[in-house]
Amino acid sequence: MKIKFVALLLLFTIFIALTGCYNNSKEKTPRELTAQSVSELITIENVESLQVVGGLPGAKGSPLFQKNDAKGKDIITKIIGWLSSAKPVNDQTETQYGKHGYPMVIEINKNDGRTTYIELAYNCVSKTNPDGSGTKTCTAAEGEVFIYNELIKTRVNSPRLYEWLNEGWIKEE
């Protein structure tokens, strides 16, 4: 009787472990998301508003572009269109992400309360000096942006979105 109980307990434990592994394998990590996945997560239906924020302290951002305003809806539609046609950048590494200085960032507020951010992408090279200190040199990755939130972390090539974030949004005011 004791052997049957132990065997049953062992089978039950294996079943629970395999079920957990199967469910975890279905969850997408930020690295598995593609530009297409991003465009599916950010749609005209689920975006409430967007705004360009950040920059140097005291710098003025854009007005808040809201979906229920005609001009706001046009801007949101344009940004989502560029995201939909963006191409994923291969060979992404952590050093290519991250903020550089005081970036201007597109802050997209969604209906579900989540916020997604888009900023210019940078190529960074870190170097360890002979004295053990380090230096990091970053240059803008022309035509590329970095998109992130708690679910997404990806870099895409979108020259039009890059140019709009770099300076085009200023003309929208």
Rank of each mutant, 00 (worst) to 15 (best):
K127A: 09
R155F: 03
L64G: 01
T43D: 01
F65L: 03
A86R: 04
E119K: 15
S49K: 12
P30W: 00
K99Q: 12
C21N: 03
S25C: 01
F146A: 05
L151S: 14
P103E: 07
K71V: 13
I79R: 04
F5T: 05
V125P: 11
I75D: 12
R31W: 10
V105Y: 09
L18W: 04
M104V: 15
K127E: 13
L151K: 03
K153D: 13
K26V: 00
V156Y: 04
P130W: 12
M104T: 05
S62K: 10
T13Y: 02
N109I: 08
S62N: 13
H100V: 14
E27C: 00
I3P: 02
L33I: 08
A35R: 11
E107H: 06
I76R: 02
I152L: 11
T116G: 13
S62I: 06
G132Y: 05
G58K: 07
M1G: 10
L161G: 05
F5A: 03
S84T: 15
F146M: 02
P30R: 00
I118F: 01
A141G: 06
T115K: 06
H100I: 12
I14M: 02
E27I: 07
K99D: 12
L151A: 12
N129P: 03
P57R: 07
V89Q: 01
L64I: 03
L165D: 11
I80S: 12
K71N: 14
S133K: 04
L10H: 03
N23P: 02
D74N: 13
R114K: 10
G72I: 05
E144Y: 05
E32R: 06
N24K: 13
A86T: 06
W164A: 06
M104Q: 14
I14S: 07
D131Y: 14
V89S: 02
V145T: 04
S158Q: 13
L33K: 02
T116D: 04
A141H: 14
V156N: 01
K110R: 08
V38Y: 04
Y22M: 06
E173V: 04
I76L: 01
I44T: 09
E45W: 01
I152S: 08
K153H: 10
N123R: 14
S133N: 10
L8K: 04
K78A: 11
E94S: 15
K73T: 07
G54L: 12
A35Q: 05
L9G: 12
E144V: 08
S37H: 05
V89L: 00
Q36E: 03
D74E: 15
P103Q: 06
Y102Q: 09
I75G: 12
K99S: 15
N24Q: 10
G54P: 11
N24A: 13
L161M: 07
L18Q: 02
P88N: 14
G113F: 00
T19E: 09
C124D: 06
A70F: 11
L11V: 00
G81D: 02
L64H: 06
V47F: 04
K110I: 00
G101M: 07
L18Y: 05
C124N: 12
K99L: 13
V89I: 13
S37W: 13
K171E: 11
T93N: 02
L41Y: 10
I106M: 13
P88A: 01
N24H: 02
V145F: 05
E150G: 07
I79M: 11
